[in-house]
Amino acid sequence: MADTSGTQDAPIEEGATEATRAEQIRGILDQVRADVRLGHAHDEAALLRQRLADAGIAVSEAELEQFIDR
């Protein structure tokens, strides 16, 4: 049966499901930074926290701070 919800709930790029945790985080961080740079978002930390949660990737506050400081 085809999914008719109209949402993308999983990665669609080839190899996305084989990515390591670090690669997944790096990809999400790149997306978040692009969104901030383009003006689609203003709070990098909040957006990164949300995107990581959406992806089911748990990070500590200390780890999150490391990503934002880079």
Rank of each mutant, 00 (worst) to 15 (best):
M1F: 03
M1K: 05
M1C: 15
M1Y: 00
A2S: 12
A2D: 13
A2C: 07
D3L: 10
S5L: 07
G6A: 08
T7W: 03
T7N: 09
Q8W: 14
D9T: 15
D9I: 11
D9V: 14
D9K: 15
A10E: 14
A10G: 09
P11W: 10
P11C: 12
P11H: 03
P11A: 10
P11D: 11
I12F: 14
I12K: 13
I12Y: 14
E13K: 05
E13V: 15
E13H: 06
E14P: 08
G15K: 00
G15E: 01
G15I: 07
A16L: 09
A16E: 03
A16S: 15
T17V: 15
T17P: 05
E18N: 11
A19G: 07
A19P: 01
T20F: 11
T20R: 09
R21A: 14
A22C: 09
A22N: 11
E23N: 06
E23P: 00
Q24M: 09
Q24P: 08
Q24R: 15
Q24K: 15
I25G: 02
I25E: 00
G27H: 01
I28S: 05
I28M: 10
I28K: 02
I28N: 04
I28P: 04
I28L: 14
L29R: 03
L29E: 00
D30M: 12
V32F: 07
V32W: 00
R33D: 03
R33Y: 02
A34M: 08
A34W: 02
A34V: 07
D35Y: 06
D35F: 03
V36I: 15
V36N: 05
V36A: 08
R37F: 13
L38S: 14
L38R: 11
G39N: 04
H40V: 08
H40M: 13
H40N: 13
H40Q: 13
A41S: 14
H42A: 12
D43P: 00
D43Q: 05
D43W: 02
E44K: 01
E44A: 12
A45F: 11
A45P: 04
A46C: 12
A46F: 09
A46V: 09
A46Y: 01
A46R: 08
L47D: 00
L48P: 10
R49T: 06
R49N: 04
R49F: 01
Q50H: 12
Q50G: 06
Q50I: 05
R51L: 10
R51V: 09
R51Q: 06
R51E: 08
R51S: 10
L52A: 01
A53K: 01
D54Q: 13
D54W: 07
D54E: 11
A55W: 04
A55D: 08
I57T: 03
I57K: 01
I57W: 03
I57L: 08
A58H: 02
A58W: 00
V59M: 03
S60T: 13
S60P: 07
E61I: 02
E61D: 12
A62H: 07
A62P: 00
E63I: 10
E63G: 06
L64F: 07
L64C: 09
L64G: 01
E65C: 11
Q66E: 11
Q66Y: 02
I68K: 00
I68E: 07
I68M: 05
D69S: 14
D69C: 06
R70M: 13
